[in-house]
Amino acid sequence: MIGFEGAIAVEARGHSGGLAMLWKNKEKVTLNSLSNNHIDVTVEVHGLHKFRLTGFYGEPNRAKRYETWNLLRRLSTEPLSPWCIIGNMNNVLNQLDKRGGRLYPNHLIQGFQSILDDCNLHDLASEGYQFTWERSCGPDERIEIKLDRALINDSLMAQFAEAKLTNLEISTSDHDPIFLEPMVVTNVISVAHFRFENAWLKEPMCKKIMEDTWHMNQGKTLQDKIVICSVVLQKWGKEITGCFKNCINQCKMIMKMVKGRTDANSRKLYKEESKKLKEIYSQQEIFWRQRSKQLWLREGDQNSKFFHSSTKMRRKINHITFLANNADVQNSVLLDDIDTKEVKDALFHMHPDKSPGSDGMSPGFYQKYWSTMGEDVVNVVKKFFANGTFDKHLSIL
Rank of each mutant, 00 (worst) to 15 (best):
D118S: 04
K256F: 10
N36I: 03
W200Y: 13
Q95E: 08
Q130E: 13
K275T: 13
K276T: 11
Y366G: 02
G128L: 02
T42D: 01
H46Q: 04
I143M: 01
S136F: 07
I228E: 10
M257S: 15
W200G: 03
G364F: 04
L147S: 02
E169A: 15
S309Y: 12
K235H: 09
K50M: 03
D353H: 15
L80E: 13
Q330H: 11
A327V: 05
R267E: 12
N331P: 08
H38P: 03
K202F: 07
L201P: 04
V191G: 11
M373Q: 05
M157T: 01
M253R: 15
N217H: 09
V232R: 09
I286C: 10
V227A: 09
K341I: 09
Q110T: 10
Y270H: 11
Y270F: 15
D40M: 04
V29W: 09
I143C: 01
E285W: 01
S266K: 04
T166C: 03
I178K: 06
S136E: 09
K208N: 09
N106D: 13
L103R: 12
F194L: 10
Y366S: 05
N325R: 14
M361E: 07
N303W: 12
D337Q: 06
S16K: 12
N303A: 14
I338Y: 06
A199P: 07
L19T: 06
G374H: 01
F348P: 13
S171I: 10
M89G: 00
F322N: 14
A63Q: 04
K202E: 11
A199Y: 03
S76F: 06
R102C: 11
G6Q: 02
I115F: 02
G237D: 03
D224Y: 06
N326F: 14
T262E: 13
N325G: 10
S274V: 05
G18D: 05
R135M: 11
L108K: 00
K312M: 08
K146Q: 02
P82I: 09
R261A: 03
F306S: 09
H46S: 09
T372C: 12
T262I: 08
S395R: 02
F4M: 00
N246L: 15
N379C: 08
V184Y: 11
N61G: 01
G58Q: 04
L323F: 15
K271N: 13
S126Y: 02
N387I: 03
W83V: 09
C119T: 04
Q294I: 14
G138H: 02
F196I: 10
K238W: 13
T311P: 05
H349D: 14
T389Y: 03
A150P: 07
N120H: 09
H393E: 04
F307Y: 14
E59A: 06
I178R: 08
N90Q: 00
N120P: 08
K164I: 09
S114N: 13
S173G: 07
W296R: 15
F287N: 08
S282G: 13
E11M: 07
A7S: 06
H308W: 14
G18R: 02
M183Y: 01
W370D: 06
Q294V: 15
V29Q: 07
F160K: 05
D337A: 14
H49F: 10
M361S: 05
H107V: 12
M1E: 15
L335D: 10
F244V: 06
I226D: 00
S362T: 13
E27D: 12
Y270E: 12
R314Y: 15
F56A: 00
N217V: 07
H175V: 06
I170M: 14
H122M: 09
H349W: 11
G47A: 01
